[in-house]
Amino acid sequence: MSGNANSGTSRAKRKKLIDSGALLDLLIILAVLVVVKQSVLLFSYLYAGPASTVSAMVVATILLRRRGLGWKDLGFRWPENWLKTMGLTLLSMAAFIVATQTMQLFADAFFEDVGMSGRFDHIEGNLIAYIGIMLLVWTHGSFFEELLFRAFIIDRTSATFGGGLKADIAAALLSSIFFGYRHYYYQGMHGALITGAGGFAFALFYLWFGRKNVMPLIFAHGIFNSLGQTFRFLGIED
């Protein structure tokens, strides 16, 4: 009898290792990001990503409120120390560069670099298009992507597996793999690997300081994208 009781207790403990509520939140957001993007891709190559992140932000906000949470609980708050924030922003950018350049050595050896597949070619010399893309850079490409791919996905994945170091690392890996996949449709496997490596660097920084304040990662992401789009507008190879 005691053996059956112990077995039942062990099964109960194993079940508690999975937070079904957090898992459901995670699956819903991943589904929204995939389904909306794939649907919009049928009509627009440029706006599929932004449409999916806007949709996911709305749904994620609702899900968090249902749990009694808000984006502030995931690190989205105004910096109290701007000097420290700028320092962490620069450090995040340096780590991103190291991670992506290291992965590029591997990607170059096995996959063709297709660049951006012409997705942003219309920006060169086009001021109206440049202004429009910069609006996307500082919404979809910085705030929304960091809040979704770092804050929300990492928080919900870690919570799914009960938190702790192992759960955090698994969450960082999942978020970076999914982040790389998100860029596959126009960057190919070469770009997906490099982007995923950069995403993993950002994920580790989120685990370090982003839960308290994700703004350095948002700033770093926005600065990188701003530089890239500015180079394209000016006709400079980045």
Rank of each mutant, 00 (worst) to 15 (best):
F231V: 02
P216W: 08
A203H: 07
L135C: 08
A197T: 02
F161D: 05
Y185F: 11
T9V: 08
A107I: 04
W71F: 07
V59K: 03
T230D: 03
L127R: 14
N126Q: 12
P50C: 13
V40F: 02
G87S: 09
V58N: 08
T195D: 00
R77K: 12
T53L: 11
I169S: 09
M86G: 15
R77N: 10
V34H: 04
I123V: 15
W78R: 15
F43W: 07
K16I: 01
M86I: 15
N4P: 00
A170R: 02
G188I: 04
V32M: 05
I97C: 02
H122W: 15
G228H: 11
Y45N: 11
K13V: 08
L204E: 08
L173A: 15
A51N: 04
G132C: 10
I62K: 14
A12W: 05
L193K: 11
K84A: 14
F110D: 00
W78N: 14
Y184K: 14
A109P: 07
G115E: 07
F120W: 08
A95V: 10
G164Q: 11
T102R: 00
A171S: 09
I154N: 09
F179N: 07
F200Y: 03
L17G: 15
G132K: 04
A48I: 01
F149S: 09
A220Y: 09
D168V: 01
K15A: 14
H183Q: 12
V137Y: 00
K72Q: 08
I223Q: 06
A60L: 05
A192N: 09
F149K: 07
